[in-house]
Design a protein around this nucleic acid. Structure first.
Lengths: 101, 101
DNA sequence: CCGACCTGTGAAAATGGTGTGAACGCAGGC
DNA sequence: GCCTGCGTTCACACCATTTTCACAGGTCGG
């Protein structure tokens, strides 16, 4: 419970994500993506769903924006919570947020 | 109910198979196969049927794809639900999915 | 105008999935 | 108990997808 998650709070209304009470410095897009992912814990979300929520509309068929922002998000989360892996890849489908790690 | 099955939920629409609420990390093929098998509980399905549903078309006469993917599926299910044997071999015919184990 | 940052894109590198052949093991018939 | 046929698993080569990097254009504040 203390390991990995429980340390991370997400407050969309305050445009903030906190680790141990300290705000991460996320860009708007990164935060939107984190909010969207974490709103559906343990649920596998397709790129299309994520894109629709964060960017709006439909992604081009070869659009890699979601992947790139997942990568950036992971980098910042990984720095703030070393060892935690909160965002899981589901090959050929999309991504899944898991509070447990 | 708690032993073996009842722990396993299969949600094709969500591209997921859950054990105790947690998604297994199955590949697309593995999931397709599990979905197909579990759609007909207690029914013996031939390799031809399974191949047609998952791969489409007819298998080559010496095609072992179905067997290999059954093996991979069993491995992942066995890890997630130790002791359960959900997929039964019917020699010379095919495979059968049994929720009871 | 300048510098700092955010954003999306293309492309290279890394990772993971797929199907095949071959080795192995088990079950059933004799 | 041995043979034989089928099922199971392994190892590998090929292909697809994901991850990461570098960059160019845009925006905002000083």
């Amino acid at each position: 419970m203390l390991a990995g998650m429980g340390r991370l709070e997400i407050k969309p209304e305050e445009h903030a994500a906190l680790v141990d009470g300290r705000p991460l410095s996320l860009t708007v897009r990164e935060l939107q993506l984190l909010v969207t992912l974490s709103a559906h814990p343990q649920r596998i979300m397709t790129r299309e769903e994520l894109f629709a929520e964060v960017w709006g509309g439909r992604p081009r068929s070869d659009d890699r924006s979601v992947d790139v922002y997942v990568s950036r998000l992971r980098a910042k989360l990984g720095e703030a919570i070393p060892g935690a892996s909160l965002i899981h890849t589901h090959n050929g489908i999309g991504y899944r947020f898991s509070p447990e790690g």
